[in-house]
Design a protein around this nucleic acid. Structure first.
Lengths: 218, 218
DNA sequence: TTAATTTTTTAGACTTATCTAAATTTTTTA
DNA sequence: TAAAAAATTTAGATAAGTCTAAAAAATTAA
């Protein structure tokens, strides 16, 4: 069994660990968990004792198989609940993160399986993030972002890297929702902004936006 | 704001307080909360400081308006989630208590309102308990139990007083579900058991069962 | 390659919720 | 109504998770 807090630590380690480094640093964890480095050190030792993480002093942590299972399980629950909130309760995609952050810690395997079935076995959450299956398998297909595209390349928006409500609201206002077909018309070296065509209309998009939109060709 | 634990204390005080005594005793709280009297004393002082309860040493506690609101709100959430679990996720009525016990602490007014709408504004949970409305109003119509009926009186089962899975499973096996029309055929002074007729079939029912079934005439 | 800076850990303290054991108050009973 | 029993509270400890301040280790830079 793991607690609310432990699950949040494991989730954070998972998210940082899957973006590069082999060892996740104390400081980076403190930052995304909104806590202090000293608290992280304490907690990480407890997680190591429970065999949820490997911990090397002054180096960092990474997940054991046991820790990985809990982390992915928590993310799975988070994303399934987000689908429920948006598709069944009519929340908007920028309103669900906080609530799902609580719901993800509800502890019942049976509940998750039935929720998944009720929702029709969705593969992605409302932000385009893949939902891990019951065995912890995650699809990782989102390797390109809008700013990677060349001039005249066409693609479809399939996900967002940034989940801040303000970003999601921006996308909504600018017709840049998931599933939208988009074509790069021009790119500017100076500020890395680009001109894109969406539904026949041209618009300028900043680098900040372009690098946070996952796309696929086709 | 109130914590998980505080909500459970307030709920417990509400349940005990609405069954008689003006002041709920430390010991009775300890018993239903599965904790020790000394822990209850500590907690109750903290609740009094937050103005959730009135506390008189060596006498007991009762709820303030603020405490009542939290208690009823928590019960409202619990019962709405139970409806969701049974009606949408196909759980059985004897499987939902534990899960709802966790879900009831999720903190979002908007979520509760949308869940209630999604479920079609149900008035009762799967055990026949009334769901408080958004203003905290609760229908209290279940004043009679099966053992109160006289010989040849007829009634309909509308709720259960006891929620233990073993009791609910017993009722299912004996066709004593909510909505069932029932007629008392005989009553025995000796052990207070009674003979009832359900769908033309006669069956003996123990006092233990009869006093835990809420009924209404007609 | 030593000094300065940054990162990480340790030490000691706080809060919440709990416990056991002892003390106190209330209630019961003889 | 005084003694015994039961209920309640206090005192002192513990565990989880956090904090600040200081010490130690690692990294960067001159």
């Amino acid at each position: 069994m793991s607690t609310f807090t432990e699950e949040n630590y494991l989730k954070a380690i998972y998210k940082l660990g899957h973006r590069g480094e082999d060892w996740v640093s104390t400081n980076s964890l403190a930052e995304i968990l909104n806590t202090k480095a000293s608290s992280v050190t304490d907690m990480v030792k407890k997680l190591a004792e429970k065999d949820f993480v490997n911990y090397k002093p002054y180096t960092g942590v990474n997940l054991t198989a046991k820790g990985l299972e809990i982390a992915v399980g928590t993310i799975r629950k988070h994303r399934l609940w987000e689908v429920f909130l948006v598709e069944r309760l009519d929340f908007k995609w920028d309103e669900v993160h906080e609530i799902a952050e609580e719901l993800e810690h509800i502890n019942s395997d049976e509940l998750v399986l039935r929720l998944e079935k009720f929702l029709g076995y969705p593969k992605y959450d409302p932000h385009g993030d893949p939902i891990p299956d019951r065995n912890g398998k995650v699809l990782h297909h989102k390797n390109r972002v809008l700013s990677d595209l060349k001039i005249n390349e066409e693609a479809i928006i399939v996900g967002v890297k940034e989940h801040a409500p303000s970003f999601l609201q921006y996308l909504e206002k600018h017709n840049l929702l998931l599933g939208t077909r988009i074509k790069v018309r021009n790119k500017f070296e100076f500020d890395h902004s680009l001109v894109v065509e969406v539904k026949g209309i041209e618009n300028t998009v900043s680098h900040q936006v372009a690098k946070n939109l996952y796309v696929v060709n086709e």
